[in-house]
């Protein structure tokens, strides 16, 4: 199926969805949102592209393999448990760090965000892997 409207929309929607997915990911740190939804949006961006241009063409524009993305996500999620061990706490304890303290850009980040990033990659990779193999049929 070749639809010019879909193709143009997909081309423009992809970067937009990617940026939005990052926003949702970061927002999930304190508000509704998070790695899972962000990951779904990340995956949806490429699935929309694949619907418009076909799976082969989409895979050419990907600079990573979805399976590797999933593995990377699992690795990041696992790594988010490690800082707690160095801080002397039990594995997976949330550790918080403040950046740019006492300035206008004060930023509190913690290992839960790192875990969310892991979920983000894992969900996106898994979604793409499943959808691409279904659409290839």
């Amino acid at each position: 199926m070749e639809s010019i409207i879909l193709q143009i929309a997909a081309r423009h929607m992809r970067p937009l969805l990617l940026v939005l997915s990052l926003i949702v990911l970061y927002r999930g740190h304190n508000e509704p949102g998070g790695g899972f939804i962000g990951g779904l949006m990340f995956g949806a961006a490429y699935i929309l592209y694949a619907m418009a241009f076909g799976v082969k063409k989409t895979q050419k524009t990907l600079f990573f393999n979805p399976i590797n993305l999933t593995a990377l996500g699992l690795l990041v999620a696992l790594a988010s448990g490690i800082p707690a061990i160095f801080a002397g706490d039990l594995f997976m304890t949330g550790e918080w760090y403040t950046f740019f303290e006492h300035t206008a850009f004060e930023l509190k980040l913690g290992t839960p965000l790192l875990f969310d990033v892991g979920v983000y990659f894992a969900v996106a990779g898994m979604l793409m892997m499943v959808m691409f193999s279904l659409m290839e049929e």
Binding site: N68, T70, A71, L74, L75, L78, G81, I85, F91, M92
Partner: peptide
């Protein structure tokens, strides 16, 4: 602390094996 290892180690091995699956 050793009690988390039976879960973490397989996960770690799985990730390594996923990267090197060929």
């Amino acid at each position: 602390m050793i009690l988390v290892l039976p879960i973490i180690l397989p996960l770690l091995f799985m990730v390594v094996l996923m990267f090197t699956r060929r």
